[in-house]
Design a protein around this nucleic acid. Structure first.
Lengths: 182, 182
DNA sequence: AGTTGACATGTCAGAAGTGGAAGGTCTACT
DNA sequence: AGTAGACCTTCCACTTCTGACATGTCAACT
């Protein structure tokens, strides 16, 4: 049975990079470094950490105050990460809710439809601007997570710009199809 | 409780557009028209059709051979689709397995990492070419699904091209960081 | 008459993901 | 001494999704 279990590898990978962290640390790391790549809820993460421990991929290195458990990747865990990186083909899950809506946009009036598209475009423009600010505020070091984090951020920027441009193009197509003054 | 349940609306939307179809028909429609927007497994779809029926959003219009049930959207269903399109804010689920891997690419050797990126880039190039062929082969009419399907396909093309370009950029960044001959 | 293959639906176990409640500890400030 | 707030983990109920397996009909071909 070939399963994917990406959260598992996301957690494992972060642990390897961080060289020791608690669930709490990881949760924040998820938010900070991989916010637009992968999300994890608290219940999912803690559960996965227990499973990873049971499978011998990570271990509790030490216990701190407040019940804190500092996890560390084992050799088996590092090997598993490598295996996943190189030998498991990535799975594309294409699920885009906005695009899904677009498919059925013919069900509302042209004006309502165009308004929807304009809204999405504007939302992207805004997020793009926010991202630009954020980028300027970050001190990009040369550690792995920073380096790859910067690549991911560039991806995010290009992705948003591409969608914004596509939305604008869609508006033109909509206008062509339903000319206000024919 | 605000749930999203996009599969439900994808099915409902397709039914509205198609004006009557069986689960089997829908399954194929999903593949053909929304392959790179939303995927549905057979078990999920049939289950959802039953739930939609129970909720009064669709109904069995007629039964054909081989137990075929031809579904049709009800007025309540059409209203629900409209509501979802206009009033339910789209949810962004950002989960990109390829990007996730990129994050941990520092764990393998520079050569292995570059090879991975090049592979992904080439795969996209290929898919882009396939899509181009497919596009030429389709007879794009003016019905809703065709019109919006064409928009979605353009999205797919731009998305792939954007990723391919980004991968190439990543390769340059990787080379800068680990110069072969320094 | 037999077989292949498209048509058509249903069910089930288990994995993955969501959202929230609950319970507790330590630090710093008032 | 009190309390707010950050820190930290566990558990639970529920929904969604996946991947099989099971079951059968009908049309076309050999």
């Amino acid at each position: 049975m070939l399963r994917n279990m990406s959260l598992r590898h996301a957690a494992l990978g972060l642990l390897v990079e961080m060289d020791g962290a608690s669930g709490y640390d990881l949760l924040k790391m998820f938010e900070i470094t991989m916010g637009n790549v992968w999300q994890a809820t608290q219940s999912q993460l803690y559960g996965e950490l227990n499973k990873l421990t049971a499978d011998g991929f990570i271990e509790v290195a030490s216990e701190g105050p407040r019940g804190r458990k500092e996890y560390r990747a084992t050799d088996a865990g590092r090997a598993e990460l490598r295996r996943w990186l190189l030998d498991v083909p990535p799975k594309f899950v294409r699920r885009d809710e906005v695009l899904l809506r677009l498919f059925f946009l013919g069900q509302v009036s042209p004006d309502e439809g165009a308004a929807f598209v304009r809204e999405q475009s504007a939302a992207l423009e805004k997020r793009l601007a926010d991202l630009g600010e954020l980028e300027g505020a970050i001190d990009w070091g040369d550690e792995n997570l920073s380096f790859y984090g910067r690549l991911a951020m560039e991806y995010g920027k290009r992705f948003m710009a591409m969608r914004r441009d596509w939305y604008e193009w869609v508006l033109e197509e909509l206008a062509k199809r339903d000319p206000k003054d024919g």
